[in-house]
Lab assay of single mutants.
Amino acid sequence: AEKTGIVNVSSSLNAREGASTSSKVIGSLSGNTKVTIVGEEGAFYKIEYKGSHGYVAKEYIKDIKDE
């Protein structure tokens, strides 16, 4: 099942092309942005936001229960 997560940073969080800190940054998400978690790979979540996919470090995403 898809989960919703909240970007848990004070400034912004980089979204990357792949599940690695050396992957190209494809965008950034500001704190408290809601994202859909579609998968996980190592220390990263694969997320969907406004129709695009990217990878973000798990430690900066807070899971919330689907309402």
Rank of each mutant, 00 (worst) to 15 (best):
Ala1Ser: 13
Ala1Arg: 13
Ala1Pro: 13
Glu2Asp: 09
Glu2Ser: 15
Glu2Gln: 15
Glu2Phe: 15
Glu2Asn: 15
Lys3Cys: 14
Lys3Ala: 05
Thr4Pro: 03
Thr4Phe: 13
Thr4Met: 08
Thr4Val: 11
Thr4Glu: 07
Thr4Leu: 08
Gly5Ser: 04
Gly5His: 04
Gly5Thr: 03
Gly5Ala: 04
Gly5Cys: 09
Gly5Asn: 02
Gly5Asp: 02
Gly5Gln: 02
Ile6Leu: 08
Ile6Asn: 04
Ile6Met: 08
Ile6Gln: 05
Ile6Gly: 02
Val7Phe: 02
Val7Ile: 10
Val7Ala: 04
Val7Asp: 01
Val7Lys: 03
Val7Tyr: 02
Asn8Phe: 09
Asn8Trp: 09
Asn8Gly: 08
Val9Leu: 07
Val9Ile: 10
Val9Cys: 15
Ser10Met: 12
Ser10His: 11
Ser10Ala: 12
Ser11Cys: 15
Ser11Gly: 15
Ser11Glu: 11
Ser11Val: 13
Ser11Leu: 09
Ser11Thr: 14
Ser11Ile: 12
Ser12Trp: 11
Ser12Leu: 10
Ser12Val: 11
Ser12Phe: 13
Ser12Ile: 12
Ser12Ala: 09
Ser12Gln: 10
Ser12His: 12
Leu13Ser: 03
Leu13Cys: 15
Asn14Thr: 11
Asn14Asp: 15
Asn14Leu: 15
Asn14Met: 14
Asn14Phe: 13
Asn14Glu: 15
Ala15Ser: 04
Ala15Leu: 15
Ala15Asp: 02
Ala15Gln: 03
Ala15Ile: 15
Ala15His: 03
Ala15Cys: 15
Ala15Tyr: 15
Arg16Asp: 02
Arg16Ile: 04
Glu17Met: 08
Glu17Arg: 05
Glu17Ile: 08
Glu17Tyr: 07
Gly18Asn: 10
Gly18Leu: 12
Gly18Pro: 02
Gly18Arg: 13
Gly18Met: 12
Gly18Gln: 13
Ala19Val: 07
Ala19Trp: 04
Ala19Thr: 07
Ala19Leu: 06
Ala19Asn: 05
Ala19Arg: 05
Ser20Lys: 06
Ser20Thr: 10
Ser20Cys: 09
Ser20Asp: 12
Ser20Leu: 06
Ser20Pro: 04
Ser20Gly: 06
Ser20Asn: 10
Thr21Arg: 11
Thr21Lys: 12
Thr21Ile: 14
Thr21Asp: 13
Thr21Leu: 14
Thr21Glu: 14
Ser22Ile: 09
Ser22Gly: 09
Ser22Tyr: 06
Ser22Thr: 12
Ser22Asp: 14
Ser23Leu: 04
Ser23Glu: 03
Ser23Cys: 10
Ser23Trp: 02
Ser23Val: 03
Ser23Gly: 05
Lys24Thr: 07
Lys24Phe: 04
Lys24Met: 08
Lys24Ser: 08
Lys24Gln: 07
Lys24Gly: 06
Val25Glu: 04
Val25Ala: 05
Val25Arg: 04
Val25Thr: 06
Val25Asn: 04
Val25Gln: 04
Ile26Thr: 03
Ile26Lys: 03
Ile26Ala: 01
Gly27Gln: 04
Gly27Pro: 01
Gly27Glu: 03
Gly27Arg: 03
Ser28Arg: 13
Ser28Glu: 11
Ser28Thr: 14
Ser28Trp: 13
Ser28Asp: 06
Ser28Asn: 09
Ser28Ala: 10
Ser28Gly: 05
Leu29Met: 05
Leu29Ala: 01
Leu29Cys: 06
Ser30Ile: 13
Ser30Gln: 14
Ser30Gly: 09
Ser30Val: 13
Ser30Tyr: 09
Ser30Asn: 11
Gly31Ile: 10
Gly31Met: 10
Gly31Leu: 09
Gly31Pro: 15
Asn32Gly: 15
Asn32Met: 11
Asn32Pro: 04
Asn32Trp: 12
Thr33Asn: 04
Thr33Val: 09
Thr33Gly: 04
Lys34Met: 11
Val35Ala: 01
Val35Pro: 01
Val35Glu: 00
Val35Arg: 00
Val35Tyr: 03
Thr36Cys: 11
Ile37Trp: 01
Ile37Met: 00
Ile37Leu: 02
Ile37Asn: 00
Ile37Ala: 00
Ile37Arg: 00
Val38Trp: 05
Val38Ile: 14
Val38Gly: 00
Val38Arg: 03
Val38Tyr: 05
Val38His: 04
Gly39Phe: 03
Gly39Ala: 07
Gly39Val: 01
Gly39Tyr: 03
Glu40Arg: 03
Glu40Leu: 05
Glu40His: 05
Glu40Asn: 04
Glu41Pro: 00
Glu41Ala: 07
Glu41Asn: 06
Glu41Thr: 07
Gly42Thr: 01
Gly42Val: 01
Ala43Gly: 12
Ala43Asp: 15
Ala43Pro: 13
Ala43Ser: 10
Phe44Asn: 02
Tyr45Cys: 08
Tyr45Ser: 04
Tyr45Lys: 04
Tyr45Met: 03
Lys46Cys: 10
Lys46Pro: 04
Lys46Arg: 08
Lys46Phe: 07
Ile47Asp: 04
Ile47His: 01
Ile47Leu: 00
Ile47Ala: 01
Ile47Pro: 04
Ile47Glu: 04
Ile47Gly: 02
Ile47Asn: 02
Glu48Ala: 09
Glu48Lys: 14
Glu48Val: 14
Glu48Gly: 01
Glu48Leu: 15
Glu48Pro: 01
Glu48Asp: 07
Tyr49Gly: 00
Tyr49Ser: 01
Tyr49Trp: 09
Tyr49His: 03
Tyr49Leu: 07
Tyr49Asn: 00
Tyr49Val: 05
Tyr49Thr: 01
Tyr49Ile: 08
Lys50His: 10
Lys50Glu: 13
Lys50Tyr: 10
Lys50Cys: 14
Lys50Val: 05
Gly51Ile: 02
Gly51Thr: 05
Gly51Asn: 08
Gly51Glu: 07
Ser52Glu: 09
Ser52His: 09
Ser52Val: 13
Ser52Gly: 15
His53Ser: 06
His53Met: 09
His53Gln: 08
His53Gly: 04
His53Leu: 10
His53Arg: 04
His53Ala: 06
Gly54Tyr: 12
Gly54Asp: 01
Gly54Glu: 01
Gly54Val: 13
Gly54Ile: 09
Tyr55Ile: 01
Tyr55Ala: 01
Tyr55Met: 01
Tyr55Ser: 00
Val56Glu: 00
Val56Trp: 00
Val56Gly: 00
Val56Leu: 05
Val56Asp: 01
Val56Pro: 00
Val56Ala: 00
Ala57Gln: 14
Ala57Gly: 09
Ala57Val: 08
Ala57Ser: 10
Ala57Asn: 10
Lys58Gly: 02
Lys58Asp: 01
Lys58Cys: 04
Lys58Thr: 02
Glu59Met: 11
Glu59Arg: 11
Tyr60Lys: 08
Tyr60Phe: 13
Tyr60Gln: 05
Ile61Gly: 00
Ile61Lys: 01
Ile61Pro: 01
Ile61Glu: 00
Ile61Gln: 00
Lys62Ala: 10
Lys62Arg: 12
Asp63Leu: 15
Asp63Thr: 14
Asp63Val: 15
Ile64Pro: 06
Ile64Lys: 03
Lys65Pro: 09
Lys65Met: 11
Lys65His: 11
Lys65Trp: 09
Lys65Leu: 11
Lys65Gln: 12
Lys65Gly: 08
Asp66Thr: 12
Asp66Leu: 13
Asp66Tyr: 15
Asp66Arg: 10
Asp66Val: 14
Asp66Ala: 11
Glu67Asp: 11
Glu67Lys: 13
Glu67Ala: 13
Glu67Arg: 13
Glu67Met: 13
Glu67Pro: 12
Glu67Val: 13
